[in-house]
Design a protein around this nucleic acid. Structure first.
Lengths: 111, 111
DNA sequence: CGCGCATATATCGATAATCGATAGGTGACC
DNA sequence: GGTCACCTATCGATTATCGATATATGCGCG
């Protein structure tokens, strides 16, 4: 499937998005999805098919932890929280992102 | 191979880089590589293994053309030039990129 | 002359991330 | 009882990138 007509710029930045979102406060997956969509007016999205593998990835790296809890609506949900090393990683990835954008701008403005 | 320790933010933006570079002037592949590396101090790179497939991709989409010519050094080289529809595409991808960066910034600054 | 280096194109295989689709389960409200 | 919002999860297909590698040529230099 996947018509793939848009360049997938998201590629490689989902981890950064998730880490940054969890640095605001612990949250369950579905809440992350909504947070990102709302914040970016739908420009970025963290869909289940990408999000849950990403969360697993981050957990495996020790950058987030997960624990089952009750959501305010009464259902059970898996709450993810960023770790200390996750915060370090967030810093690294943020810097990398800025460097990347900077470099892109230089290319886009070249004459 | 590929230790893959850095988030590959480049993913999906190589086409934009190439289109923008060729919009400055027609150029052969190797020159694109050098142009990008020099412009970004090595932050971004267009390596052969990614570049030539990308050029083929862009050509297939009608966004660039290719023709063999002599390079200033006397060797034969394949010169790529952006087409009219390539310029349109460049505009589209530039907008998308800005929208993406904008959205990312909103996420990175959220509280 | 012969050596090596910068120039230049090209392909292959491995890797990995994303996405659409799909499935399943629960609480609440009408 | 039905439907909706909530919430987690997996699978398969797709695709771009990258490292490595191969090949070839013009040029400067010892």
């Amino acid at each position: 499937m996947a018509p793939r007509d848009k360049t997938d710029l998201l590629h490689g930045s989902l981890d950064l998005i998730v880490l940054r979102t969890l640095s605001v406060q612990p949250m369950h997956g579905y809440a992350i999805t909504q947070h990102v969509a709302r914040l970016t007016d739908g420009v970025l999205s963290a869909d289940p098919g990408s999000l849950y593998p990403a969360l697993e990835r981050l957990k495996r790296n020790g950058w987030i932890t997960a624990k089952w809890q009750q959501s305010p609506t009464g259902r059970r949900a898996r709450y993810y929280a960023i770790t200390r090393s996750g915060l370090t990683q967030l810093g690294r990835e943020t810097n990398e992102f800025e460097r990347f954008v900077d470099a892109m701008r230089r290319v886009l403005r070249a004459t």
